[in-house]
Design a protein around this nucleic acid. Structure first.
Lengths: 228, 228
DNA sequence: GTCCGGTCAATTGTATACACTTTCGATGGG
DNA sequence: CCCATCGAAAGTGTATACAATTGACCGGAC
């Protein structure tokens, strides 16, 4: 019989490394264009290259890195066109999700979100930026988690993650934060009223606005990574 | 200088194996639920398990197989719900593609498609089934290849491939073939007139109709593969 | 007969060694 | 001084060996 044999091969290791690298991409430590060297990562996480390779394939699957034969892996970088494309897709999919979510989202969390948005609106913007980001992500995730279409959720998570990884949301800018907050508040109120038509219009506008913002940010900071 | 050093390690091998396995899934040789054993495939294609493993990861990326830790890889199988989900996503994305493609598709190919649809309409259905399938795929591919959104194309190809892999299109049924042909003809004519509104309506209806069809087929043939 | 536990073959997971490619800099000729 | 060429170093690609897990088969107790 097996004693407390510590789970020597658990695949949990692989997932943890994936999460770790993902975080490093999302929080901006690994910027677009940076090369991910297999040996380096293997040493960092004290596993064999085999594991790292599989993690890289997973990141590839999630569109977070690019891979060139014999030339390694690098964090994706986007042209303005790509950003525009991504937002258009997101709009379509999120509107699709909304159609069924509007009646499936339970009331209490919606009220909680409304409350939270009100609170944030009355606080100083600069200090609360991280919380704004957090609530923003949670809110959108909340919507599409209630669309009852697993595959759609998967696609949306993928797209959201990509957009987030670009770090183009513009939460450094005060007016952006304020305006986003207002849009979210209006949205959640439409949700509470189960008013699909209004919600669709607001969501569509909201995503268009985010897109314009992202593009502005992208132009603002040229030079962090060359585009192919 | 390098002589005609035959490309010993070219990664072309990997792609070829991917294509081969993909074909076997698409043409129905590897049915949903079938397990893909690494050693077996390695022997079949006379490569090491390493290669096969990477091919399997790629198939996983394309959502064509499922993978369970320590329990291997199998071809995906779908519940009716999944099929419904998939078609809804496809509808959204293809409508998005249409919006920009409607004015980007060159005229000649459209006229050629119209011609082709007319021809097929007047032929005996049974004998022409494979050609119907071929034109069907080509037509939809033609539309979304002109949407000028690379990522959208990638998603759409993925979804189309998945739907195709289900082999649920119902081209064995005479009335299905005929009806599909008529819908395509109407569609291409709307494209030629650059009539977005009509095209959107027709495309939406067409995909809904395909979906109902697929669901019918799915129910028709229970027992080919158990669903989880 | 059925349920339980253990053993064994088949299969997947991981590490490592080696082969090949690419990159970049040094060296030498023009 | 510039450029071509060679070569070493770094990095990726592939094969193979071994470890761990799973699932099935088998025998015995109840």
């Amino acid at each position: 019989m097996k004693p407390t044999k510590a789970p020597l091969r658990d695949d949990v290791a692989k997932r943890k490394i994936y999460e770790a690298v993902l975080q490093r991409i999302l929080n901006g430590e690994l910027k677009p264009g940076v090369r991910l060297v297999e040996n380096q990562l293997a040493e960092q996480y004290t596993v064999s290259r085999t594991i790292i390779r599989e993690v890289l394939f997973t990141l590839l699957r999630d569109n977070l890195v690019e891979r060139n034969h014999n030339r390694g892996t690098q964090v994706v970088s986007f042209t303005p066109d790509c950003v525009e494309d991504l937002y258009e897709i997101r709009k379509s999919l999120e509107l699709l999700a909304l159609k069924t979510a509007i009646n499936a989202m339970p009331l209490e969390p919606l009220l909680a979100f409304e409350q939270r948005f009100r609170e944030l609106a009355s606080e100083a913007v600069q200090v609360a930026a991280p919380q704004h980001v957090e609530v923003d992500l949670a809110f959108h995730a909340f919507v599409f988690e209630h669309c009852q279409n697993k595959r759609l959720v998967a696609y949306l998570e993928n797209v959201s993650q990509l957009i987030h990884s670009l770090r183009l949301l513009g939460y450094e800018l005060e007016d952006v934060v304020r305006e986003t907050g207002e849009q979210h508040l209006a949205l959640v109120q439409a949700f509470i009223r189960r008013d699909l038509a209004t919600a669709e219009r607001l969501l569509s506008d909201h995503i268009d606005w985010s897109k314009r913002n992202a593009l502005r940010m992208l132009i603002l900071r040229r030079g962090i990574a060359p585009v192919p």
